[in-house]
Structure formats: C-alpha cells, structure tokens
Design a protein around this nucleic acid. Structure first.
Lengths: 208, 208, 208, 208
DNA sequence: GATGAATGAGTATTCATTCAT
DNA sequence: CATGAATGAATACTCATTCAT
C-alpha cells in the first residue's frame, strides 16, 4: 500500500501533524503552485522545524500525496454522509449529483489542485490516487445502473453517464475564470441536472 | 500586447526556430512537466546552443506562453478550416462540435498541458491566453444563439451550452486515464452529441 | 536599517561566520576584484558549503557591504581606542592624524577596496556606508574646530581641513604604486603633519 | 608597446571609431560601471554591430585601456596647452596647479574611472597607464624643483609636493559625495593653493 | 568592412534533504 | 521528538567572443 513515511510512533500525533501540514500546504499550493511552494514555506506556516517536518513525511511529494488522499476522502465522505442511500432510485441519482456539486463548489481549491498538480505525483502515488477516484465514480455508475435496471431510465451506458456527471461538475470549477462571471452556481447546478436527466430519461434525438 | 522577446532580426528565422522550440518543449513538457523540463533539455533537443536559445526567447516562461499561444491558434484554425459556416444552422452546431472533438483528440497533449500548466504562466501571459480561449468559445455561443433565434432550439442559455460542449469534450481528454479503457472515442463523440442535442432540442424533464 | 539577511538564529554563530567570510572575501577581492570573485571562491576559502554560505548572507552584494561596514568599524575603533580625547587640543589633532595614518597604512587593502569597489554597492548600502564615513570625518572637524575656538589655530574651515587630512592620508595608499618607491611611510606621515600644521598655524601666503 | 588590436587598415577610420567607442563607453561606465557595461550596450550606443566592434578592439579590456589612454592624453594636453612654460617660476607652479584642478573638475568622470576601474586592467595595460601618469607627475616635480633651485621655495622634496598636489586635487573629485555639498570648487581651489604654498614657502611649524 | 547569428563556459542563487545535538 | 545548521546538486540566465556570409 502506498503510505507516507514517518519515524514517529504515536499515530495520533502523526494524524494531527499531517492535518497541519495539509492545511498549510493547501493554502500554499493555491497561492504559488506546488512547485514554487518550498518546504521552508511549509515549515514557517506550520511552525514546525524543517527537520521535524521530515519526521512526518518522507519527501516533498508525500505532501502532494497527502493532499490528494485527503481530498479523495473528503469528497467520498461528503457523498457518504448525505444519506442518499435511503432515497428512492431516481432521487438517489439527483441527490448524489447535488451533493457532489456542492462538495466540489466548497472545495474548489482541491479540484483545481487535482487536475493541475496530480501529474507531479510519483507514478505509484498517482496510481493510488486515481484508484480512489475510480472507486468513487463507481458509486455514480451503480446508482445509474440501478435506475436502469428498475426501468426508470433509458438503457444508457452508466459509465458514460457517471463520467459526464463528474466532468460537468468539475468543469464548473476548472473553467471558472470564464463561466463564473456569467452563470451562478445555482443556475449551473440546475442546468447540469436538467442536462443529465433530459438525456437519461427521454433520450437523444439522434443528434438532430 | 504580450510578445516573446527576441534579439533576432530575421522574422522568418524566428518563426522557424519558435516552431522547433515548440516541438521540443511540447514533447518534453509531456514527458516531465514544465517545471522539471530544463532549458538544457530544450537546448539538446533543438540542437541550439543555450545562448542561441535565449536569442529567441526572453525567459523560460516564454516557452510556456509559446505553447499556449500555438495551441490556441491550432484549435482556432481547426474550427475555421472546417467549413462549418456554409452549413445550415443545426448542422453548423453538429459540425463544430465534431471538429472540436476531433481536434482535441488529436492534440490531447495540448489539452492536458493547457489545464495542467497554464497556472505556471505569468499573470499577463495567462490573461492573454484566457482571452484567446474566451474568444474561441464565443463561436460556439453564436452558433447556438443563431439556432435558437431561428426557432430550431429551445431558448436555452447559449453561454451554458457552449460551456457544456467544451467541458464535455475536454473531459474526454482530461479524464482519459479512467474513461479511455471503457469507452471509445467514437462512442464518446456520439454520446456527447446526443447529450447536447437531447438537451437543446426537447428540453429537460425538470430533473425527474 | 541596512542589514545583512541571515537564516541563522544563533547570533554569535553569525558573528563568527561573518568574520570568516570577511577574511576570505577581503583576500579574494584584493586578488581578483569583487566582480571576478565568485561565491564558489568564498565557499572554498571559508570551507562552507555554497548553501550554508547563503544562510549567512542574502546576496553577493551583502559580502561587499559586510566588508565596507567592517572597514568603517575598524577605522572608527582605531581612532576611538587611541586615547586622543585626553590630550590637549593641538595634541589631539596631531594624535588623530597619526592614528588615522597608521590605521590606513595597516589596512591598505581596505582603503583600496573602499575607493575601488564601493560603487558596486547597491544604492541603499552605499548610502549607509557613506553615512558611516561622514560621521567619522566629523571627529576631525570637531577637533579642528575646538582648537580654533581655543585660539590655537587660524580660523580656517574645519570641513576643509578634515577633508584634506583624510585625502592626504588616503592618497598615500591610493597612489602607492607611484609614491611608495620614493618616499617612506614615516617621511610621508611627517610631511602630511607638517603640511597640515603649516597651513592651520601660520596661514597661507595668499597663494604666492 | 601596448596597443589595441585591430584588423582595419585605414588608420583614420580606426581613430574615428575609437572615438565613438570612447564616448559610448565613458557614459556607460559612468552609468553602470565597467563590469556591468556589456559589449551589447556599446554596440547599441555606437550603432556598430557586435562583429564590427570587434574589428576595432581585441577584447573588452581594450575598451577600458582605450579610456585610460585617452584620459591620460586629455590631462596631459590640458597642461601642455596652458602656456605654463612661459611664466616665471613660482607663477608656473601656480599655473599648473590651477590648470590641473580645472581639468580634473571638468573630467570628473574620468578621474573617478581611473581610480575605480584601473584595477580591472590587465597587468600589461595597467603598467602602461601608470607609466603615463608617472610621466605626467614629473612635470609637477620639475616645476617645484626649478623654484627650489632658484631659491624661491624651501628645500622640500619635490616628489612629495607633486604627490600632494595631485592627491588634493583628485581628492576633491573622489570624495565629492561628501565635500561638494559643503565647499564650492573655487573655495577648494583656493584652499589647495594656499595649503601647498603655505607649506613650500614658509615651512612647517614642526607639527606643533 | 560590416552584419548578426551562434557558441558555451561561467555564475548567482535555490531548495530538497540530512544529521549532529 | 524537536531543532536548526549544513550539504551540494541543480538551474535559469548572461555575455564575451567568433565566424560564415
């Protein structure tokens, strides 16, 4: 398993320090990008000495990995805690789209970071992170599949739909420099919802 | 205007060398990312001496700007040369979506680079690049607007639709690690087309 | 205040290392001039690693500033510790001239450096250094003024006299390539002393 | 003989170009110092191409030598053309002091440059330049000697006097940052004159 | 004689990482 | 566990100089 190297025995202590490092790093990466962020920056921001910092991480890349992992956990947790599982099928879909959208809007920095900096991760770590994301997408696929099986949706490809959902939501963040001036988050959420449902409910007009 | 600094007087020579630099840089950025690409790498790859390289650029950032500018031009040119203007309204829309998709598929490296490295650009250069992209999006908006005005489409927000089109197409490239194993480009192109048209033609089911 | 940047927390350590850097730099500047002296030279000479060197200075210019500051301190200290203050007025003047001369003779390298390299200092640092020198000159002015007030000297302009004293003494160092072959330091000291006193005691012959 | 390398046959052409180079270089050295002045700067300022520049000089150091040589010639010429030779002995001395002072005041940039940058000259060239200066000083020595021989002055050491004269005059320029605010050139000229004459006419008071 | 493109060694500076205390 | 000083490889950029045309 991909793990962050640490010399420290007390796991709780590690958890707390990792939390601090995450906070500092996220704000710094946002400000200057991962490459221009230095470990001295982190050291200053966390008020840990440089040497101590290295007791909790094995390398600078570990910090990036830490952020990605945490991000994955956050997005997963947001879905999990939304209680979507208790809703009826179609409502489930609507619910997780909504939660995912809200979640991504709140954590825009994380979204940006995942698209912009993930390629800086060492291969192994990248694989790990992508694996987590892949697992997360499966939830969307399953929900769609369930509705199809229940005859509530056209027999579309759940993989494609899940991909569209994530893409459209992330697009709202990734292209914010262009779109946020022109469309509000609520409008966008509604548009995405309509777009997805217009497609899965009634079906395509065969592209005109 | 944002321009790349050069000491060389012969503009044709500059054009040619910039081409070479672009080629080398694109492949190197793809391989190691912009930050880990060194000017020595470029120098070796282009077989220009380090000093000579600096006769054609003002700084390393200029190389990134060069790529972005060139990318913008390529995507613009692909649309322009597709003859979409001569088609009837709805066909126009279909056409530019198709061309944009094909264009982005061919230049996946450029797409990745634009999302991953644009934040490394100096502010001024970034503004410039985003401006070009914004201008490009306008084409999509106009085509949608025209069809709406002609009563061929529902009165959707052209800004949103244009945004969706670009987002869905770019999503196919950005998330290729996940989706390319599962869905072919042609399937995806058709799905995107259907998705867009199902939305603009008939309309949303009010999100279930 | 103009200060040398350092990352090191222990001030005593900083003091010691600055001392080492000063020693190395002075000898190197003497040998090759400030511009041709490289930080690698300093690093080698001080046996500090390049990175560590930069923990004690902020830039190469800081080294030049370090030397200038130190030089100013040395010349000031030499005067201060000479006990001139306890002498009677005219004797005071004689004393500080003598001390200044001896001081400059011992530190000829510093004198050369101050005239040759000070223009390489950043503006702010230069201002600072000139300020220190100006303050130092004031001592000479005051001593002259005191003797004048006591009726022991003609009412000459103390500013001019102080300027002459420093100029004549520094001239012995600056033009050593010419004069040291022909006149000994002791002769010169006596000549300068006579010259100054012949002027302030009895007065000019109205330029012949 | 120390000479500046050139490939060009036509000596008049060389003279003219050297003149241009001198003008450009002097102003540039004044502005940024010899080290920070680049040959590209010179090229731009003289509107000669870089290659062409190298047809008239052998190296960057040649430019510094060119300036020094020219400076020496100027100071020499100023003395020569002053008609001092036709004056009676004491008047001769007074005259050349005055001319030297005026000459140095007009060419302050050259004076600064000679003290600040001469150590950048290659050994051979430095020797050459110092030789010219030495020769120039001899004039002062001779004039003093003549007056002594004529019984018009005390039997002082002419070498010392000549040295003092040059030193005091150059001091007015070298320390201008301090003294120009407080004393005018005319006052200074008079003070120097008085100082010298008070010393050579009547003699020292044995240093109090 | 003139042009301007090319060369490449050289330099200040940064920063991830280590380690003695 | 924590500190902070030390290491040194790496890198963007400059500039004197050369040379084909």
């Amino acid at each position: 398993m991909t793990t962050i190297t640490t010399n420290i025995k007390n796991p709780e202590r590690v958890r707390v320090k990792h939390e601090q490092i995450f906070d500092a790093a996220l704000s710094l990466v946002k400000k200057k990008g991962f490459n221009k962020m230095t470990l001295r920056d982190i050291s200053k921001e966390t008020r840990m000495s440089l040497g101590n910092l290295y007791d909790y991480i094995g390398s600078k890349d570990d910090i990036l990995f830490l952020i990605h992992q945490k991000a994955a956990k956050i997005f997963e947790a947001n879905i999990d805690s939304s209680g979507w599982k208790d809703a009826p099928p179609l409502e489930k879909l609507r619910k997780i789209i909504e939660v995912e959208f809200d979640s991504k809007v709140v954590c825009q920095d994380l979204v940006m970071l995942m698209y912009q900096e993930s390629h800086e991760l060492p291969k192994e770590a990248l694989r790990n992170v992508l694996g987590l994301e892949e697992k997360r997408i499966t939830v969307f696929e399953e929900v769609v599949r369930e509705s199809i099986d229940a005859g509530l949706l056209r027999p579309v490809n759940p993989v494609v739909i899940a991909h569209f959902i994530i893409t459209l939501i992330d697009g709202w963040v990734l292209r914010r420099w262009s779109i946020h001036k022109k469309v509000t988050a609520d409008e966008m959420k509604k548009s995405i919802m309509d777009m997805i449902f217009s497609y899965v409910l009634d079906g395509a007009r065969e592209g005109a």
